[in-house]
Design a protein around this nucleic acid. Structure first.
Lengths: 233, 233
DNA sequence: TGCCGATTTTGATCTGCGTCAAATGAATCG
DNA sequence: CGATTCATTTGACGCAGATCAAAATCGGCA
């Protein structure tokens, strides 16, 4: 793999737990790979043979039923970690929502390296704990929030996640951003249909909380009111 | 704390990662505590000051909205780990569903010990990854499954979890068991109302997939059909 | 610039589950 | 052992969001 020291996510990915010489060893185990929008990196139910760091782009983690219903169970951004180290088949598919670059490892190679590097495992544990907290917050959304609360929550969540990984790095969130998801995918994250998502967006627009310059863009015009709605107060 | 070597969950809890002399040190940091049914160990939003292992009993992890809606985001059984090590406030409450015994540590003491014991952190990482997989499967349930599919899934899940922690230890699941949840709590796990849960149970009973000897007992009479329903095929 | 296919929005209608209310059953206690 | 209380079930009805259908809008490309 090319130079890790120059990697744009060097300081945010789990690699930040490593010293330069350790990083050099790890870099030999992985390789940089391009993933095109729509391409699936890991299939639900397959043995998880690879893990990866996201360098650029956005990917979804999704679960499907036999009859074709889909639920997106996670969205990963640059510097996030993908995959299931230490055994087990993957319980979800990983698919690129935008063109992406990932830094990919075979699970066997990564596991072996991780065993020898407690600091890396510590970083991974913290990340996994954070991810679990996020998943649980989302369970509240899916189990108990109304459609408008769900859509408001998603917009704020994306605003926050995109902000913290934006090039500027300074803003905690962005008031204007491009959605990495289309309407169908927003429905799949929120447990709603495409029509309901569309209707709720129109309502938020009419209530002057947001505007929608084009189908992929969102401008948050009244963050405060959007937050009140999202919190389900 | 009393003798860890004799602990009933010694071989299943994260402590199994430790050697006898390490265990002796850890045991000095914690203490055994009784928690009565209904008692809350950790409050949502509070700084997470304790972590614990469950020795006996069942506890729920729950999230609430300002206006009183509740979602149960996890149910923990004997040998499971509770809490959020390494900083952060707790994003959920922990409350006993039955009388319970836990082996409790201050977070500071546990964090310090864990830092020195990579094997413990490794165990904790695996457990957290498993928990995350379970949470994501539950997101599919909450986002996309119908009421009857949800109830079927819950019954099978409890059957499995209770089986693997039962005294016999041999069975992968139990066909007869006591529910640790009442109807309201089942609704709170499933994102349904108490009435819907009750109606679906009646339907499953009428379809001869289960029987309900009393309000807390369930007998699975046709696991195969129940599984088909749960899988949403 | 104007056409074509895909995405999104909007409209009309339906339905699964929620809400409200009452009846039944099971546990506790004097 | 009957009275009280709480949990659960059952019934009637309403509504948020799903479904089905059509119109509008956007993006790409010749």
């Amino acid at each position: 793999m090319s130079d890790c020291e120059a990697c744009v996510v060097r300081n945010r990915a789990i690699c930040s737990a490593l010293l330069p010489d350790e990083l050099a060893i790890l870099s030999k185990l992985g390789r940089k790979q391009h993933v095109s929008r729509g391409q699936t990196l890991v299939w639900e139910g397959d043995e998880a043979l690879v893990v990866a760091n996201v360098i650029s782009g956005v990917l979804k983690l999704s679960v499907s039923t036999a009859d074709g219903r889909e639920q997106i169970v996670g969205v990963v951004f640059p510097s996030d970690f993908i995959g299931r180290p230490f055994g087990k088949e993957s319980s979800y598919s990983v698919t690129a929502l935008t063109d992406a670059h990932v830094c990919i490892f075979t699970r066997a190679a990564f596991d072996g390296f991780a065993k020898e590097h407690p600091d890396l495992q510590h970083k991974l544990l913290q990340r996994t704990l954070d991810e679990l907290d996020r998943a649980r917050q989302w369970m509240m959304l899916l189990g108990r929030k109304t459609a408008s609360e769900r859509v408001a929550t998603l917009l704020l969540e994306i605003s926050n996640r995109m902000g913290s990984t934006s090039c500027t790095q300074i803003l905690p969130f962005l008031d204007e951003f491009e959605l990495p998801l289309d309407r169908q995918q927003m429905g799949d994250v929120l447990g709603l249909t495409i029509e309901t998502v569309s209707r709720q967006l129109t309502k938020l627009k009419e209530a002057n909380m947001i505007s929608l310059p084009d189908r992929r863009s969102v401008v948050i015009k009244d963050r405060h009111r959007l937050q009140d709605l999202a919190l389900a107060a």
